[in-house]
Each structure stands twice: as structure tokens, then as C-alpha cells.
Design a protein around this nucleic acid. Structure first.
Lengths: 143, 143
DNA sequence: TTCAAAAGATGATTTTCGTCATGATTAAAA
DNA sequence: TTTTAATCATGACGAAAATCATCTTTTGAA
């Protein structure tokens, strides 16, 4: 479904969103430790999120990452698109180069319903909502 | 979503299902040509489907592959499971080793709905139904 | 200036995807 | 019956992409 990079990205963004406003920045080490991800690989992913304006970064001592916008205005779909691109939303389920309503693959219509369901969920689920479950203790960032 | 191998598998099985009953076997060359897939790689995939009892193979001149059961009794989910395993149906969307109702990942409940939707579709969509769209001319196996 | 932290470049490893050569089987031809 | 050729089966190999690590450079606060 998602690439590993994308899973790390969602968990990382979620963790950052769980932090109180007083914590204005978080370091890579803490993030990768909290979400149980390889540090160097996580760094790469965070770089992409910074370039995509979902995060801001600060260098130097006491540097780190912070969210660019409000957590209620950042949605899972934005993260997925930043890392995995839009192939999940627009690509053909069976790999046809040109697959659309006029030239549909064998399962095009069946999958449209699934895809719409998935896209709708991703585009309406905010980081604030997800982070709430973590702070609540009902959901977890690691096993 | 699906691996390339799985996409080829679905298209290959669908093509075989489109053939009339008189055609009791189809060769690899014809299959990979019709679904526009690399021949050698497709051979590997068909082998797995044979081992999984979704296909039967016959060697020698005029050999080939044929479906093991009726196309109305073979469902997309069986093909997906044979090639990609059950990770799509049971694996955690965010990659947690142990993710379940008692220890859910950040998006566990949100994804359960999607997953159930997807699994339901795959488990109830038969090859016969899919093949009908191809024979109908409304759907296509290649671009 | 010093030093901690992110950014960036590069390389290693693993997985997936794909090819090739060879063997095994069997129908058809001789 | 024997030979030939077509076809699937198998294993080794190679290419490409994804994942993960190491090292150097840049930045900026103390």
C-alpha cells in the first residue's frame, strides 16, 4: 500500500503533532527513536517533507524540526503525496500505462470505489485527529 | 498497492478466463503477448499459480496452461494472496510489527474500513465477472 | 571559535524485477 | 519405435529500485 518511507513519514509527522506547543522543535534522534525508524533514512524523508513545506527545519545546536502549519490543517493525503507521489491516487491498479474511463483496465470500476474511499479518508483525516489518538493512549507509534 | 508480479498474475488469469471452453490450453507466449508482460518473468509467476492450484500446466508440444477450477469460483483475492501473500489483508498500514485492536497503530481504525472494503471486493469478484468485461469490449488487458 | 544539529554526497545492502541457459516432459513427425 | 521439437520447470545470474549507513559540509547558537 504505502512505501516504507511513506510509513515513516506519517509516523514522524504524527509524533511531531503530538508534542505540546511549548516544544517548538524536535530533533531527528528523538523522532527516529520514538517511531522506531532507521535514523539516516528518516533524515532523508524529513528533508523531503521540509522541501515540500510540510515541515520547517532549524540547523545548529538545539536545532530540529517543527510543523509548518497547524496540525488540523495538515492531512494524511498531503504526506502520502509528498513521499509516494500520486500513483496511489491516480495510477492504474493493474499497471496499464493509460487507464481511464474510456480505456479501463479489467478492474477499473471495481477499484475506483476503493480508491475514492481511500483518497477521501486520507484527504479528510488531519494530523491533529491522528495525534489525539496517540496522546490519548489509544493508539501507538511503535510496537 | 499490488506488486508488478501480482498485476501480471491478475491479467494473465483474466486472459485465460476469457477464452472459450474449446480452447483447453494456452501457451506462455500468447499470454505474455496478450497482457503485454515480460515473457520469462510471467513464466515464473504462472509457476507459482500452478503450485497454488489455481492453474494446471501441460508440457510438450501444444502444451500450455488452463484454469484448475471454474472461473466463477476463482476470485481475485485468491490470486493476490498467492502472489503477494496476505500482507495486504492483514499487515499494518504503518508497518508496526504487532498492530491489532488492542495495540493499534495511529490509523488502524481508519484503515480497517478501507481494508475491509478492499478485501470484500477482492473476495467477491470472480474471474468470470472480470473476463466478461474483457470479452464485452468494455475493459482491456493492455494499453 | 566551538560544537551540535541538519543538509548533502556517496556507497552498501536488500528486495523486486527481469533475463538466460539448461533440464524435463510429451506430442508429433520420421 | 525413434527422433525431433515444442513447451513448461528450474536455477543461476543480472539490473533496477528501495532501503539503510557513513562521511563531509553547512548552519547557527552559545
Amino acid at each position: 500500500m504505502f512505501s516504507k518511507a511513506c510509513k515513516y513519514a506519517i509516523n514522524a509527522m504524527t509524533y511531531i503533532a503530538t508534542l505540546p506547543k511549548e516544544r517548538d522543535r524536535v530533533g531527528l534522534k528523538e523522532i527516529s527513536k520514538e517511531i522506531n525508524s532507521p535514523e539516516a533514512f528518516t533524515a532523508k524523508i524529513l528533508q523531503v517533507l521540509v522541501k515540500d513545506h510540510l515541515l520547517t527545519s532549524i540547523k545548529g545546536p538545539n536545532g530540529g524540526f517543527m510543523m509548518r502549519g497547524k496540525s488540523e490543517e495538515i492531512f494524511l493525503g498531503q504526506i502520502v503525496e509528498a513521499i509516494d507521489g500520486d500513483v496511489l491516487f491516480t495510477g492504474c491498479a493493474l499497471g496499464l500505462e493509460h487507464c481511464n474511463g474510456h480505456h479501463p483496465c479489467a478492474v477499473h470500476h471495481k477499484f475506483k470505489a476503493i480508491r475514492d474511499h481511500l483518497a477521501g479518508m486520507l484527504m479528510t483525516t488531519s494530523l491533529k485527529e491522528v495525534a489525539f489518538g496517540i496522546n490519548n493512549g489509544t493508539n501507538f507509534l511503535r510496537s
